[in-house]
Computed example of a mutant assay.
Amino acid sequence: MGDSKNVSLVDVGLAGANLAGANLADVDLTGADLSGADLTDASLAGANLASADLVGADLTRADLTGVIAHDANFTGAYLTRAGLRDADLTMAYLTSTFLGHADLTGADLSGAYMTGAYLGDADLSGAILISAYLGKANLTGANIVTAVLDGADLTEATMPDGTSAH
């Protein structure tokens, strides 16, 4: 795609598309339908995914550094080993999402819905999870030492040490 600066794909329909390895850095994908898309190893750094539909998408090892994805729907998506450093995921839907070994350093997940999400061995250093809902999430081995969890709901979540939150 070459230089993707200032490219606008607002509300584009790419459901089920094979975009593995694609360079979508800095692309405006606001409201895009990427449900079920293969974005394995894709670069979406700095992209705008606000209100996008990524239900069931495969973003394994994708670079989403600094992505704007507030109110985006990642339900059931695969973000294993994805780079989400400094991402804006406020009010995003990450229900039953796989985020094992993901880098969420400095990400803003305020108000995010993460029911049943798998965050095993994820790095949440400095992540902001104010009022996030992490009910039944699995945080086994995750680094949450400097994460801000004020008002976060961890009901029945599995904590980094393997114990269950009440």
Rank of each mutant, 00 (worst) to 15 (best):
A112H: 09
G126Y: 00
N73Y: 05
H101D: 15
D153Q: 09
N48W: 01
D33G: 05
G16H: 04
D153R: 13
S43M: 05
L19I: 09
N73I: 06
A25N: 11
G151F: 05
V145E: 09
S110W: 01
G76E: 02
I68S: 11
D108K: 06
L14M: 08
A32N: 04
A147L: 04
A25D: 04
T158Q: 08
A102S: 15
A62G: 09
G126C: 01
R81V: 06
N138C: 04
D58I: 14
D53H: 13
T155G: 14
D63K: 00
S35N: 08
D53W: 13
D153H: 06
S35V: 10
S131G: 05
D3H: 04
I128T: 13
D58A: 10
T155K: 09
A127M: 05
D108P: 08
A82V: 01
V55F: 15
L24D: 01
G141N: 12
A42P: 01
G36R: 05
V67S: 07
L54W: 03
D33N: 13
R85K: 12
A57N: 05
D41T: 11
G31I: 10
S131W: 12
D3K: 15
H101N: 09
Y133R: 08
L54D: 04
D88E: 09
D53E: 09
H101M: 15
N18A: 07
A87V: 00
L79W: 01
D11T: 06
I68G: 05
A50P: 02
T80M: 06
Y118W: 15
D3S: 11
A132W: 00
A137R: 03
L44A: 06
A42S: 06
V67E: 06
L129H: 01
